[in-house]
Write a protein that binds this DNA or RNA. Structure first.
Lengths: 135, 135
DNA sequence: CATTATGTTCACCAATATTGTGAACATTCA
DNA sequence: TGAATGTTCACAATATTGGTGAACATAATG
């Protein structure tokens, strides 16, 4: 199950992507509209800024805005950042691979084969889905 | 990511499925062989018994054994029991469905569409995989 | 320059889930 | 009867999740 943090991040990003102009959108506006706890949302928006997905403007009339095109922001990147890994087992993760602590030979492990298949199809769907597809 | 409990359950079940005879296998034997903490494993084996997957025999020379054929025990049932749901969002879960707290109309929600597709393909793989396939 | 509205930083906290452990007891077999 | 096993239920340590608080920095406006 995805964490609330990940869901809030997706919802906030879709909100910003729907905003056609480049205006800065206040976190309070997103929080109110999408019913996300304000201060928690700010943490999330800051993380998205550090990821290079959002930019921000300080001061009066400040706020957040996308700094990439919606079609360049892939769901797989968002999930991977907030969930840590897409795979259900570390031994089938691409970015966070760790050797299996149970099986002797990963190349013939049947359990691993099943979860590798799941990881690959899941990643395939997330990787081909951009923010543009979610507007 | 799957919890250790779920992984231990799968590993223990595969161990029992590999056992061709109907002999009772002690939890200590599985724990030692698969490097699973003994007392935690016992909790898991008891849950599997309550699920109707395992039977047990008390006393000396007691232990656990499968009471279904390996081909009748589907991975989807194991995952669902220990993880709670297969889907990454409750709004696309079959068994644990809960309405989405964000979108106004689930039938047109794009986020939901993506995770429904992931849920369905994942379930498809888990549902067609039985313990027999993992031996 | 003062005011006000915003983002920034960093520490902290509460609730919940995960990952176990302890101890007393029941059953079976030799 | 004694040893080996499973059963039950409570408990505990640790990690993760889901936040909050407070002080501060920056920018626009008058």
């Amino acid at each position: 199950m995805l964490s609330k943090k990940t869901r809030y991040a997706m919802v906030a990003l879709v909100y910003l992507a729907k905003e056609e102009s480049q205006r800065a959108v206040m976190s309070t506006e997103i929080a109110k509209s999408e019913k996300i706890p304000q201060r928690f949302l700010e943490n999330i928006l800051l993380e998205l800024k550090k990821m290079g997905v959002l930019g921000s403007k300080l001061g009066k009339a400040g706020g957040y805005h996308l700094i990439k095109k919606p079609e360049e922001i892939r769901l797989s990147d968002i999930i991977r950042h907030f969930e840590g890994a897409i795979a259900m087992l570390y031994c089938v993760s691409e970015k966070q691979y760790q050797p299996c602590e149970f099986c002797k030979d990963e190349s013939t492990c049947k359990i691993r084969g099943v979860f590798k298949e799941i990881r690959d199809t899941t990643y395939g769907i997330l990787e081909k889905t951009s923010l543009q597809d979610l507007i």
